[in-house]
Amino acid sequence: MEFEYPIEGGDFTRAGMASSQVKKVLKQLNIAPAIIKRIAVAMYEAEVNVVAHAFKGTMLVNIMPDKVFIKFIDEGPGIHDIDLAMQEGFSTATESVRQMGFGAGMGLPNIKKNVDELQISSVVNKGTTVELTTYIS
């Protein structure tokens, strides 16, 4: 079962909308609350990263009987050093993003904590792809 949602860079008012829709679907499919919670946290962080750091992107969701796979593809600056970006507290967020309460550098570490598999690939000045896999059975 596949779903696709566009994400607009810079639109913090709507950040989290796509995640919220996916969460509704997961509830309807009777996925265990504890797993939904973990997926919700991870996909929200990944969605906000597209909003905060990229120009625009797409969230692709594929729900299979044994796992939920979510892929974020964006067009944006890309990540220079993925290992560095994964460290707690590392952030390149601008002052204006920080003023909105983001930019603590906790997003990626938080995603890692909440999913079973995390894959990031990025081309500088082109874009980033973040893939999250959560097993549900």
């Binding site: 079962m1 509830k27 309807q28 499919l29 009777n30 609350p33 729900i63």
Partner: peptide
């Protein structure tokens, strides 16, 4: 205890069919 009214079916595969 939770008692979700949102789930379409206890069984996930049936729930997916129903959602379709």
């Amino acid at each position: 205890e939770p008692r979700s009214i949102l789930k379409l079916d206890d069984d996930m595969e049936s729930a997916m069919k129903k959602m379709g």
